[in-house]
Design a protein around this nucleic acid. Structure first.
Length: 244
DNA sequence: GCGACAG
DNA sequence: ATCTTGTCGC
């Protein structure tokens, strides 16, 4: 699929100020609530993840429908900027969009490895990609970029726990706005080890509660939603090949 | 100056 | 994220 808003393509050649300005524009176009048209009964869901062999970015997309993998797509690009917290989508976005351009099926929803609305300018990777493609999207991060937990219960959180993530002073939105949820998708029973929660937020055309529900609904036996987990291992395979 | 920060 | 050995627990 092609970008519906090519003007939002993440050009790594922009200055930092220009990138941040574009993010504010993207955030204003983003819809952080459920779309009027609900998702189909059995949606095609894609998981997106990256790996970085040497100085290149490998983006992998795994498309699933009713629990089955129906397509895999990928792309490799050279990296032009370093990792800068808050500007991740400008480092990885080019290869992600290139991979989407080779995807033949029409996804109804995309799950990204990284933040969506949980971002300084409310325009994390999942939001940037979702708005650019005009595709409903959800951000699934393994650590918290900004914001704070609201009234967290005692740790470790038990499986199924959801804790609201509220905007703090670092986020360009009214303080206390619900940006997403910490979601404990899996947890060990007793024992000495415990699993950290996921930080789930709306990318585009999805509300915070729905984003959390979608992330949970797509988990199989592991902490990460299955489409993302499969995209992660696929990206890893491709990266291994690229290194040789 | 200090703190803090997805992948 | 990536680079890496060992170690814990089921």
């Amino acid at each position: 699929m092609e970008p519906v808003h090519p003007e939002f393509r993440p050009d790594p050649g922009l200055s930092r100020a220009e990138m941040e300005s574009l993010q504010r524009q993207i955030a204003s176009e983003a819809v952080f609530e459920d779309a009027d048209e609900h998702l189909p009964e059995s949606p095609v869901v894609v998981g997106v993840d990256q790996a970085f062999p040497d100085e290149r970015a490998v983006s992998a997309i795994v498309a699933m429908h009713e629990g089955e993998v129906i397509e895999r797509a990928s792309a490799v690009t050279d990296l032009s900027i370093p990792y800068i917290p808050g500007l991740l989508s400008f480092r990885e976005g080019e290869s992600i969009l290139a991979a989407f351009e080779t995807l033949e099926c029409e996804p109804d929803l995309a799950l990204f490895d990284g933040s969506g609305r949980i971002h300084f300018r409310q325009a994390g990777l999942a939001t940037h990609m979702g708005v650019t493609l005009d595709l409903p999207s959800v951000g699934v991060a393994k650590s918290l970029l900004c914001g704070r937990l609201s009234n967290p219960p005692e740790e470790p959180f038990s499986e199924g726990t959801r804790v609201p993530i509220l905007a703090d002073g670092r986020v360009e939105v009214e303080e206390g706005t619900v940006l997403g949820y910490a979601v404990q998708t899996r947890q060990y029973d007793g024992g000495s080890r415990y699993i950290n929660p996921l930080y789930v937020s709306p990318g585009h055309r999805v509300g915070a509660e729905t984003a959390a529900s979608l992330a949970q609904a797509h988990c199989a036996s592991y902490k990460l939603p299955e489409p993302i987990r499969l995209a992660d291992s696929y990206a890893g395979e491709l990266a291994d090949e690229a290194r040789q």
